[in-house]
Write a protein that binds this DNA or RNA. Structure first.
Lengths: 142, 142
DNA sequence: ATAAAACTCTACTAAGTTGATAGAGTTTGT
DNA sequence: ACAAACTCTATCAACTTAGTAGAGTTTTAT
């Protein structure tokens, strides 16, 4: 399960995607549209900004905008930012590798080869699903 | 990432799988073989017992044994027992369905259809990987 | 200039989860 | 009777999660 933070981030990115290249969108607008506590959302948008996914402008008339193309922000990217590794165990993680401290030797770990396959399965599909994917769905529905 | 509990459970099940149909295996044996704190492992084995994956016998000469065939215990089964839903959000979970309380309407949720696909991807591969899969690997290595 | 709007940043907190540890109890073989 | 080994429940420290709070900064309109 992903954290609320990650889910809120995806929802916010979709909202920003809907207004892509159309100026600034305020946190309060997204907050109301998606039922996300405003102050919590501000933190999230800030993290997204620091990570380079969104840009912002302060002051009256300000707000947030998508800095990358919707097709260039994947669920995997957002998941990694807020929830960390996609893999089930740290020792098969691409981006968050760590030795499992209970394992005596990685070379003879029985879990590892299969867990690599599971990670690849999850990673591929989460990487293929982007903000654009959700936007396409929104179009069809309307 | 899966919890240590879940990972320990898988390791314990593999150990029991290696001794499938060969009598009882003690918690202490598994504990030493896999570097799992003994008392913690006992809790885990008890949960596995209550869930019907393993059987046990008390007293001198007792221990645990696999109650189901190794091919009939999947990573998905064990994950669900210890860590819960495989899906990223509760509203697309097969076994742990819950309404997302931030979503205004499930019918128009943009996330849902794609999150269903992601869950299916993860679920299929985690269901196909069983204790037998790991045992086959162990054979090859030896 | 100044007030208000809107983002920025840091600190804090209550509740829940995780990864154990502890110990008393039960069953069984010798 | 005794010890080995599983059974069950309680407890706990550390960490994470999902927010809340509030002071600070930037920008625009008037």
């Amino acid at each position: 399960m992903m954290s609320m933070k990650c889910k809120y981030a995806l929802k916010a990115l979709i909202q920003l995607g809907m207004g892509y290249d159309k100026g600034y969108i305020m946190a309060s607008t997204i907050s109301e549209a998606e039922n996300i506590p405003k102050k919590f959302l501000e933190q999230i948008l800030l993290e997204l900004k620091h990570a380079g996914f969104v840009g912002s402008k302060q002051g009256y008339g300000g707000g947030y905008y998508l800095k990358r193309k919707p097709a260039e922000i994947s669920v995997a990217d957002v998941y990694r930012l807020f929830d960390g590794a996609i893999s089930l165990v740290p020792c098969v993680s691409l981006n968050f590798y760590e030795k499992c401290d209970d394992c005596k030797s990685e070379k003879v770990c029985l879990l590892k080869p299969e867990f690599l396959k599971i990670r690849e399965g999850a990673r591929v599909i989460m990487s293929k699903t982007t903000i654009q994917t959700f936007l396409n769905l929104a179009k069809k529905t309307n």
